[in-house]
Nucleic acid binder design. Structure first.
Lengths: 122, 122
DNA sequence: GTTGACCCTGACATCAATGGTATAGTTTAC
DNA sequence: GTAAACTATACCATTGATGTCAGGGTCAAC
């Protein structure tokens, strides 16, 4: 199939498919006219890429293990777990930071509301 | 004082001070030679800007109420509370999304570890 | 009169994935 | 044989605050 069909069947834009290729996540053969040609497997492959992207991984991180995952089961790809653990730590730090900001913000709001009430009751 | 001294006294880079000016957060007089000149008040003003930035607000959001906050108490600036509430909602959404990703990731990790144990005990 | 420490503006780079646009060649359907 | 639909590459834009560099003034001390 050509890129337009792959885009339709995966729900991923043509633009993104070409980007994945540039990032080494997806390969294609070419017709004589230069058009990209994909096998049926490409559909599953793009779905797999999307799965990892939704898991919060960057294309670069995915590139580190995608090839292995496509030919073996994920559990047999030793590259996967470190990436997962790394991302989890990163996520924990991000969430902690956002929660700290959130707490500060709530405190400010409560403070402002208290002052407003005070002004009203005076 | 000139920009270098303001930078030292606030811990904010010269680059950022000029950026704040561009965003309308900070103003300066100029010497005849074009050098920026700041009053003592600028130190506190920059600290105030930093305070809001650490609270997760963008320079654009800060610009919406900074002028008022600098001359009145925050509680008397009606522009502040909506920005806070808005940011809080946004933060809640962000955190919820990250936590969903985190949960998925933990599940994947647990799954992989279970498979690894299985393989060992076989 | 020169060195070094300041200051100025303007512009590009960063990070990441995606959208959009321009220009041009190819295929398909009528 | 032509119009519509598809594909190709190449490039710019987005987001936001900051770093960094280029090229050039200014000023003080020696």
């Amino acid at each position: 199939m050509r890129i337009g069909e792959l885009a339709k069947r995966t729900g991923v834009s043509i633009r993104s498919l070409r980007y994945y290729e540039l990032q080494g996540l997806l390969s294609s053969d070419r017709e004589e006219n230069g058009y990209r040609v994909y096998s049926e497997l490409a559909v599953e492959q793009v779905n797999t890429i999307q799965f990892y992207i939704r898991l919060g991984l960057s294309t670069e991180e995915i590139a580190g293990f995608l090839h292995c995952v496509l030919i073996k089961k994920e559990a047999f790809c030793e590259q996967v777990l470190p990436v997962y653990r790394n991302k989890l730590e990163q996520l924990d730090r991000q969430i902690a930071q956002l929660e700290m900001i959130r707490a500060n913000l709530k405190e400010r709001i409560a403070h402002l509301q208290a002052e407003a009430t005070e002004a009203t009751t005076q």
